[in-house]
Write a protein that binds this DNA or RNA. Structure first.
Length: 429
RNA sequence: CGGGGAGUGGUGUAACGGCUAACAUGCCCGCUUUGGGUGCGGGUGACUCCGGGUUCGAAUCCCGGCUCCCCGACCA
């Protein structure tokens, strides 16, 4: 895409009502727009990043047998009353409204109940399970206090997967597969080294649930981690008894701030029983379905990535999630140089590289500053100087290092691959 | 939901109860500049969040409301 036609412009000044680094940078760079407290819109750059994250999650969900669907945001109270999550005690999280035809309606903040209800139409026999469905969907939560930029919002995209198994044994296999898939997601988006599977408060059917916590200074949770074993315990359940149960030594633990990027829950029959989701077993007897739920918030993930990869002056995002893989800058006044840059831009696009081409008539300094801010990990510069040598300057912003390359697509693409460009990005060119 | 803070051009700020609400940035025009937000000149842009009140006079003081931010509580 040519930057001259990009919807957004960068901003030099930081919006005063944002404190979180992720929101400051993402607003300045033109990724997001704040609609109101805890509610953000995604602009073209932000949406491209979000879509890349979604795509990675989708691939990993497919790899463990997930089938994508999309459920409604509007919710009927009926089904929630059966689980006790509509009444006055449990409802602070709800956004509610009324149907003009009469009756209440809620805006979904999770989907255990409706998916359980829906699956009654599709699960009848032990032959029908296991089954895994997931969706990317906007959730609404009436948070009393939104905070931390896009990390805790009232409207947000969530990937939620629900598993339906015959029994606990069958469930345990998938649960571990999903945990592994989650770690692959976090690794692919650049958070692998800092993300720990973390014991957290469980539910009716297990001692613990598993959270995935990424260590960042801005994290809102406190965890105790064992760096050697690569596992952690959320402070809220970190007692002597817990540590003994999971085999961790108090002295090995570090206390750090972290942000929750995913969680997986064993639900057991917590929802299948009240909502009457059963299957007929091999002996002809009805059995409740054994369920689990698994969540990742793609937008929050982007926030955490920016917290990790951002600085005050800008950011360098991992290739896998940056809105474009390369930022091509044309410098200098000469028409020949610009034409060379323009030709290179078109060639790279034809070869499947998603490149943002700064073709604007602004100063060199402004182009560099924007490049630093927008956070695309590879910078390509065509200037009078490089053009005279028929070269292009290639900068790996993440690892550092600058070199001159021939202006051939093959040479540039192989250099791109060395720094992590993969064919996935090609869909975005 | 408890506590604290704040609302002034698009953005960031200034203005003792008193002149036509100032400055920077952005945006537009002209020239200049082209490897780090170049410089100069001209221009555009604000019912000072809303509603009451006090006063000869309110951006400024008082009351109410709304919104935003921070801390806490809350948080599948």
């Amino acid at each position: 895409m040519k930057q001259s036609v990009l919807v957004t412009k960068t901003r030099k000044e930081v919006p005063v009502d944002e404190v979180a680094r992720n929101a400051k940078l993402l607003i300045r760079a033109g990724y997001i727009h704040k609609t109101m407290a805890g509610v953000y819109s995604f602009l073209p750059l932000g949406l491209r990043s979000l879509e890349k994250i979604i795509r990675i999650i989708r691939e990993e969900m497919i790899s463990i047998g997930g089938q994508e669907l999309s459920m409604s945001g509007l919710q009927s109270p009926d089904v929630w009353e059966k689980s006790g999550r509509w009444g006055d005690d449990a409802d602070e999280i709800w956004f509610r409204s009324h149907l003009s035809a009469g009756g209440d309606v809620g805006f979904g903040w999770t989907h255990e109940e409706p998916v359980t209800e829906m699956m009654r139409n599709h699960i009848h026999s032990y032959r029908d399970v296991p089954l895994y469905v997931y969706q990317f969907q906007t959730k609404f939560r009436n948070e009393k206090r939104a905070k931390s930029g896009i990390m805790r919002t009232r409207e947000f995209m969530m990937k939620d997967l629900y598993s339906f198994c015959a029994d606990e044994e069958q469930h345990a296999v998938f649960y571990e597969q999903c945990a592994e898939a989650y770690m692959r997601v976090f690794t692919r988006v650049g958070l692998g080294d800092d993300t720990y599977r973390t014991f957290a408060s469980g539910g009716a059917f297990s001692d613990f649930s598993d959270e995935f916590q990424t260590v960042i200074p801005a994290g809102e949770d406190t965890i105790y981690l064992d760096p050697k074993k690569k596992i952690a315990v959320n402070e809220e359940v970190c007692t002597d008894e817990t540590l003994e149960k999971i085999g961790l030594q108090k002295n090995d633990l570090e206390r750090v701030a972290a942000s929750e990027v995913g969680n997986i829950f064993t639900l057991g029959t917590k929802y299948s029983e009240p909502l009457d989701l059963t299957y007929t077993d091999a002996h002809g007897k009805p059995q409740p379905v054994f369920m689990g739920s698994y969540g990742i918030g793609p937008a929050r993930l982007l926030g955490v990535i920016v917290e990790k990869y951002g600085e005050d002056s800008g950011m360098s995002l991992p290739m896998s999630v940056a809105p474009f893989s390369a930022h091509l800058i044309a410098l200098g006044d000469s028409k020949e140089t610009f034409t060379a840059a323009d030709m290179l831009y078109r060639m790279l696009q034809e070869h499947g590289l998603d490149v943002l081409f700064d073709d604007r008539d602004v100063s060199a300094g402004e182009k560099f500053a924007d490049c630093d801010l927008i956070g695309i990990p590879v910078r390509l510069v065509v200037s009078d100087k490089t053009h005279a040598q028929k070269k292009v300057e290639f900068t790996d912003k993440v690892n550092g290092g600058e070199r001159l390359l021939d202006t051939t697509p093959d040479g540039i693409l192989s250099a791109m691959k060395e720094v992590g460009f993969s064919p996935i990005q090609q869909a975005y060119a």
